[in-house]
Simulated scan of single mutants.
Amino acid sequence: MTAGPSDLGVVDRARETELLEAALASGANVVLEGPPGTGKSTLLRRVAARREARFALVEGNAELTPARLVGHFDPALVLDRGYRPDVFVDGPLVSAMREGGLLYVEELNRVPEETLNALLTVMSEREITVPRLGVVRAADGFGVVAAMNPYDAVGTARVSSAVYDRTCRIAMGYQSAEAELQIISQRAPVQSVEWVQRVVELVRATRAHPELRVGSSVRGAMDLVGLARELARSRGVDGEDWQVGLDAALVALSGRIRVDESSTRTPEAIIEELYAQAFGPRPDGPGGEDESSGEA
């Protein structure tokens, strides 16, 4: 795949862009490390577009075998022609090597160890030996970039020191509140700047709440804004209606946050608490009564 114009909306990442471009130009392999929603994939697409390089994306998971990464001989054609180079089906790694492109491995710490081992020689020697095919050498411009979320322990494995020894690391934290406001404004129509600022405040508060192990990324804020717009339309109320915003927040954020094991509260209860802090208490009047109190 290649990067397109729509991928270039990187906000507040000038430093990381410069570091990544310098690392790749020097021939280094890079790990982009940070929580979800911090723009790791978008950043790499921007850099690939600037380099006019092929961008081969690999989803890191337990199903990523060495054959799926490197490539394989087509069984039917092997029976007919034997093990010849023209019956080898390039995987994303070999394809990127031949074309001098970038191989991007998402969720590096979810990739099986035997598959990661296939990358070691490639990262250090820029070549790989494929049984029955021979040695494949990388064209100029080839590079390996991986991304990982260091805070996610479910379904992940420890990345070996051999991999770390062959990579440079760029840490990517959450962007500023101003940058997240700009990201949301670029991606979705907003009710008002003040209202979206409160949405950003709410989402950022999930990252610092003492009872939450994991907070929401800016993607939660974008979904909240979109949900609120559609709920307000279907209910025939103002887009900044308090209950509409709460319902949108519950739907958009409850699945993204992770409550600490020591807490006895539900994700919904914590979101309601943070929502009231950002938007104020439930207002009085028609449609604004506190339903939990039993008032009609």
Rank of each mutant, 00 (worst) to 15 (best):
A179K: 08
Q186P: 00
L116V: 10
A177C: 01
G71W: 12
A139N: 12
G288W: 11
G236W: 13
R137Y: 04
V259A: 02
E180G: 04
V154Y: 14
L212R: 08
V105E: 00
D7M: 07
L79K: 14
R137F: 05
V218E: 03
N149E: 06
A162W: 06
Q277T: 10
A179N: 04
Q191V: 15
S160T: 14
P35I: 02
S217I: 08
E291K: 15
T65M: 09
R68F: 09
S192N: 04
C168V: 14
T42G: 08
L44Q: 00
V200F: 09
L224T: 02
A221K: 06
L20K: 13
V10W: 10
V122A: 05
G39H: 11
R169M: 04
K40I: 06
I271R: 07
T129C: 03
A188V: 15
G27Q: 04
R15H: 12
G82T: 09
V122C: 04
V144D: 05
A118C: 02
P92T: 04
G280F: 06
A252V: 07
L64H: 09
R187L: 11
L103W: 09
M172D: 00
Y275R: 03
R233Q: 13
P150I: 01
G91S: 08
E125C: 05
R68L: 14
L133T: 10
R256D: 11
A3Y: 13
A228H: 02
L43P: 05
G287S: 02
G280E: 02
D80Q: 15
G60C: 08
A157K: 10
F73H: 06
R166Q: 02
S161K: 13
D241H: 13
P150C: 01
